[in-house]
Design a protein around this nucleic acid. Structure first.
Length: 495
RNA sequence: GGGCCGGUAGCUCAGUCGGUAGAGCAUUUGACUUUUAAUCAAAGGGUCGCGGGUUCGAGUCCCGCCCGGCUCACCA
């Protein structure tokens, strides 16, 4: 008892120095905590061995069975000499019935001191109430953790978007559908690994801190490594390292992890995002085409039990085979069969008619691509592979065997968004060096010589693909914002 | 970066023409042994995002700033 008071007095002192101490609700809860401790219920308990998770308890329900369960109190209905409560453990909710005559009067009174949000463990017998709800008739309970701050309101929950992102804990507690999205995310990631492993791919980890941020055209985040006295960059892509592994003979590899790009934030961009890159030696773009169709339909059927998804106001059907169209044919389809015979002036006039902004100095192909980007891509709702892109648009891919002006790649578009590009990878080291040099524009420090040296030992023909996992999850979970599939999205510091 | 919208009690939201700051849930007190958005009675709870200005008086009007959402642009 003396120890208890000492603890309480010190605790008060500590918290009084914080802004939170002004919170009336928090002070009431601390008072309740002290009363509970005085009644023999320490506020922060030890590990609790439960019979089962609450969802499992519902699934294996058996009237009369003695069980132990635990969770956070999310609802409480007190009535004189009995009370009903619901606890939740993130898997499900379960109702508790607590009656004074099942416990001693003191223990029952202490139960009524519990606050919404407190985490408790109980033991008791399973039964079904008059209203046919599966319930535990509590014979013992213990406090596992006191909640000092109140939870969001029970009915409307937490809806304030900013608070949801900034305090994801609260979002998960009060919005089961948010919990469900992130559980699905975990399942999808695991199933991707299972799928690829079954096809003989090795999952690997390549550097996130790179001295040359290569493999994509994007601005990197910069950091400084004290021990080596060098600048390092957070990777923008793992591509050049995965290809080194292909050279090394690890001929089916993938990496699913974070990339970092120093760009703006919007509904479909977060500066750190999860990408899956896959490389298969002796394959090509066609290999990847088969792989992604099999993988997406497998994920959809295994985890979601369907092939149709609602996303951004459209119904998307993943039934294979997906449409394939050559870039050039797609352009003709939308802009007319004679498009590629048009003059520069006619092309610019068409762009203006379509309210597409074109810069001075753009050539015909760039104007065409600008029109594609702004007016055509967004109309491709059902999964579509766009193939045979002009080589100028994709500098790191192999050209098609029947036409050196176009490259052997696809862009997979779903719901009007780019989901995955795949290439028949460039394996000619001389050509690769020439393209790097053009890209680096004279700055030799940006050329990854180690990668080029690896290529010089010979890389087999290889199919490669990159999949934006966050966007895939948006599609599969029907989320319109990337922030709804990333647990802790980037936000501005609070002002 | 531009435009539009928003920030009021722990949460969800009202707040009219510039005139004492409101409701529901939650909280506190009391009643209640099958409730489930429990019910009934009563009570307490506010840096109206922040800072200026106009005014006798500002949640409300004006200016600046912060944070968020949508959207356009940029970037890719």
């Amino acid at each position: 008892m003396g120890k208890c008071l000492w603890f309480a007095a010190n605790f008060q002192e500590i918290i009084m120095s914080e802004e939170l101490s002004n919170n009336e609700y928090r002070q009431q809860r601390i008072q309740n905590m002290e009363k509970l401790e005085a009644a023999g219920f320490p506020a922060f308990g030890q590990a609790f061995e439960r019979t089962a998770r609450l969802d499992e308890l519902h699934a294996s329900f058996e009237e009369g069975r003695q069980v132990k369960a635990c969770g956070r109190i999310v609802a409480m209905r007190k009535m004189g000499k009995m009370a009903f409560a619901h606890i939740s453990d993130g898997s499900d909710k379960f109702q508790l019935m607590v009656k004074q005559d099942m416990l001693s009067e003191d223990v029952f009174d202490a139960f009524k001191l519990l606050d919404l949000g407190d985490i408790i463990g109980v033991s008791g017998e399973l039964f079904v109430t008059r209203t046919e709800e599966q319930t535990i008739r509590v014979d013992h309970w213990t406090l596992l953790s006191k909640a000092l701050l109140p939870l969001p309101e029970k009915f409307h929950g937490l809806t304030d978007v900013e608070t949801r992102y900034r305090q994801r804990s609260l979002d998960l507690i009060s919005n089961p559908e948010v919990m469900d999205v992130f559980k699905k995310r975990t399942q999808v990631l695991r199933e991707i690994r299972t799928f690829l492993d079954a096809r003989g791919f090795y999952e690997v980890e390549t550097p996130m801190l790179q001295q040359i941020a290569g493999g994509a055209a994007a601005k990197p985040f910069k950091a400084y490594y004290n021990a080596l006295n060098v600048d390092v960059y957070m990777r923008i892509a793992p591509e050049l390292y995965l290809k080194r592994l292909i050279v090394g003979g690890m001929d089916r590899v993938y990496e699913m992890n974070r990339n970092f790009r120093n760009e703006g934030l919007d509904r479909t961009h977060n500066p750190e995002f999860t990408a899956l890159e896959i490389y298969q030696a002796y394959g090509d773009m066609r290999t990847m085409q088969e792989l992604i169709q099999s993988m997406f339909t497998h994920l959809a059927e295994t985890i979601f039990g369907k092939l149709e998804f609602q996303w951004m106001g459209n119904t998307i059907n993943l039934q294979t085979p997906w449409r394939e169209v050559a870039y050039c044919d797609l352009i003709k389809e939308h802009l007319g069969n004679d498009w590629f015979e048009k003059s520069m002036e006619e092309a610019v006039a068409k762009a203006e008619e379509l309210e597409v902004h074109v810069e001075r100095g753009m050539d015909f192909k760039q104007v065409t691509h600008e029109i594609y980007d702004k007016t055509i891509e967004g109309t491709l709702i059902q999964p579509t592979f766009i193939t045979r892109l002009p080589k100028e648009l994709v500098p790191l891919a192999n050209h098609c065997s029947d036409d050196p002006e176009v490259v052997d790649v696809f862009e997979l578009i779903i719901g009007g968004k780019e989901i995955a590009p795949a290439y028949s990878e460039l394996n000619n080291p001389i050509e690769q060096r020439a393209r790097f040099e053009a890209q680096a524009a004279g700055d030799g420090s940006k050329i990854d010589e180690d990668f080029l040296a690896a290529l010089e030992y010979g890389m087999p023909p290889t199919g490669g693909m990159g999949i934006g996992i966050d966007r895939l999850l948006m599609l599969l979970t029907g989320s319109d914002a990337i922030r709804d599939v990333i647990l802790f999205p980037q936000l501005k510091p609070r002002g």
